[in-house]
Simulated assay, not measured.
Amino acid sequence: MKLARWFSGVDPDAIRMAPAEKRTLFGFYWAASMMSEKSACFDSIAQAACSEELGAWMAREAADDPRFVRAYESAAKALGLPPYASPLQ
């Protein structure tokens, strides 16, 4: 329930996490939102196919994929995320 409230943008303090942890959680959320609804990850995260697909999306995030940066910056205030800083810097 707390995660749903946080992701809704209604309460940026619904979950108590360090800023870096919130960024990581948002990264997983973004990666999942980019996957096909038929992704192996939605059946079992332990599947090798899931690891490959999730890893590919997480690599895009780490490489400053413009879609991730836009999504992050759009959600930052509502979710109480720290300011965006490229992991490549």
Rank of each mutant, 00 (worst) to 15 (best):
K2T: 10
L3I: 11
A4F: 12
R5N: 13
W6M: 09
F7W: 12
S8T: 12
S8Q: 08
D11Q: 12
D11A: 14
P12E: 02
P12A: 11
I15V: 15
R16A: 15
R16F: 10
M17A: 15
M17S: 08
P19M: 09
P19I: 04
P19C: 09
P19D: 13
K22V: 09
K22D: 05
R23S: 14
L25P: 00
L25I: 05
L25K: 09
L25V: 13
F26N: 01
G27Q: 13
G27E: 13
G27I: 02
G27M: 10
Y29C: 02
W30E: 02
A31V: 04
A31Y: 00
A32F: 12
A32S: 12
S33D: 11
M34E: 11
M34Q: 15
M35A: 04
E37N: 12
E37Y: 07
E37F: 06
E37V: 08
K38D: 15
S39P: 03
S39I: 08
S39V: 08
A40Q: 12
A40H: 07
A40V: 02
C41Q: 10
C41I: 06
C41F: 02
F42T: 06
D43E: 14
D43V: 13
S44G: 08
S44V: 03
S44A: 15
I45F: 14
I45Q: 06
A46G: 01
A46P: 00
Q47D: 11
Q47G: 00
A49Y: 01
A49L: 07
S51H: 04
E52T: 04
E52I: 00
E52W: 01
E52Y: 00
E53R: 03
E53S: 03
L54A: 11
A56N: 06
A56L: 10
A59P: 01
A59V: 01
A59C: 00
E61K: 10
E61Q: 13
A63R: 13
A63C: 06
D64A: 15
D64I: 09
D64Y: 09
D64F: 09
D65K: 05
P66V: 05
P66W: 03
R67I: 01
R67K: 12
F68W: 12
V69S: 03
V69D: 03
Y72I: 09
Y72N: 07
Y72G: 06
E73L: 13
S74Q: 14
S74D: 15
A75Q: 14
K77M: 11
K77G: 02
A78D: 15
L79A: 04
G80M: 03
L81F: 03
L81R: 05
L81I: 02
P82I: 04
P82F: 08
P82L: 11
Y84E: 05
Y84A: 06
Y84W: 10
Y84I: 05
A85Y: 04
A85R: 15
S86R: 05
S86D: 09
L88T: 04
